[in-house]
């Protein structure tokens, strides 16, 4: 029952925002229009999933934006020029993420601080790799991101696939269940005989994997990269997770909700530009939408507690 409530709010807020957008701009109600509206949602959705996996194990990742930027830089340079080295580097980055998770658990370090420090490291490496914006997207990623499937625009289709796959991984699979348990009660998972360090490393590794996918998808859309390309993803992904009905503690997350949260955030930006709002107020209105949607969550949780 609670799980159903959790998914209801993100769905309603996306539907309301979508209706308002169509009302403002009826021409957006088409294959091409939808693709434009949600185009940038794919990398944001992937990054939100990455953040969700970290939040699922009761940590928070302040380095995600810098990490996605670094991946974008690697994709636009090494992966394009020397695919083998590029793949190896990206795999090394995922392993580093896993190691970060293991270290955080073994030394009982606060994740917020370690990821804060790592954000400087990722940012520095990205700057080292691409001091000025540039690079080029590997052709196959570009093709993949601009593919035109029949009936459903690529961006929407990709979001559905991401939501379905992560739902299977996080909610249905054995690993996902244990990882959510880790967020719920670490000690009982340890007592049940699981190796918590390995689990934490797995969670961070998975998060790194989705971070890498986010960076690659981003380059496929923008066709070039720079060291600061995705810095705003850190806060955007946290907002997406919470908007999608996730909570900061207790392993209570919803992958479908997180993807919908990411779509809502992307749509909010498009909606505001349709409103012909003065550019001064664009950012502020995004904040206001965020507060509004989360206030609605309060009504739900009150109702949930009462019944």
């Amino acid at each position: 029952m609670l799980a159903r409530y959790r998914i209801l709010l993100p769905v309603i807020s996306l539907a309301v925002l979508l209706c308002l957008t169509f009302w403002m701009q009826p021409r957006a109600m088409s294959y091409f229009g939808l693709n434009l509206l949600f185009n940038l949602a794919v990398p944001i959705a992937l990054a939100t999933i990455a953040q969700m996996i970290i939040i699922m194990v009761n940590d928070i990742d302040l380095s995600l934006g810098a990490f996605v930027s670094l991946v974008a830089c690697v994709t636009a340079t090494w992966l394009n020029d020397a695919p083998l080295i590029g793949v190896l580097v990206l795999m090394a980055l995922i392993l580093t993420y896993a190691a970060m998770g293991a270290v955080i658990h073994m030394l009982e370090l606060p994740a917020i601080v370690v990821t804060l420090g790592m954000s400087f490291v990722w940012g520095g490496l990205a700057l080292f790799l691409l001091p000025t914006p540039g690079g080029a997207s590997p052709a196959w990623i570009r093709t993949l991101m601009t593919i035109k499937p029949p009936f459903i625009p690529m961006a929407v289709l990709a979001a559905i696939i991401i939501a379905a796959l992560t739902h299977l991984l996080v909610i249905r699979s054995k690993l996902g269940t244990v990882l959510r348990g880790l967020g719920g009660n670490t000690r009982s998972i340890a007592r049940a005989g699981w190796n918590v360090t390995a689990l934490k490393a797995t969670a961070y590794g998975l998060s790194g994997l989705f971070g890498v996918l986010a960076g690659m998808a981003l380059v496929g859309l923008t066709t070039s990269a720079d060291a600061n390309i995705a810095l705003r993803y850190t806060l955007l992904s946290i907002a997406g997770v919470i908007l999608g009905g996730g909570e900061f503690t207790g392993g209570k997350v919803s992958p479908t909700g997180a993807v919908i949260g990411a779509l809502t955030l992307t749509l909010a930006a498009s909606f505001l530009s349709f409103l012909r709002l003065s550019p001064d107020w664009q950012i502020g209105a995004q904040g206001a939408i965020l507060i509004l949607v989360l206030t609605a969550r309060l009504l739900f949780s009150r109702k949930g507690a009462a019944t």
Binding site: F248, W281, I283, G284, Q286, G287, A288, I291, L294
Partner: peptide, 21 residues
Amino acid sequence: LRLPPIIATLAASLIYQSLAI
């Protein structure tokens, strides 16, 4: 509104930023 402080201050900061602009 019982928002988590991280999200509350983040959302509010977007509004302050707009006011400053």
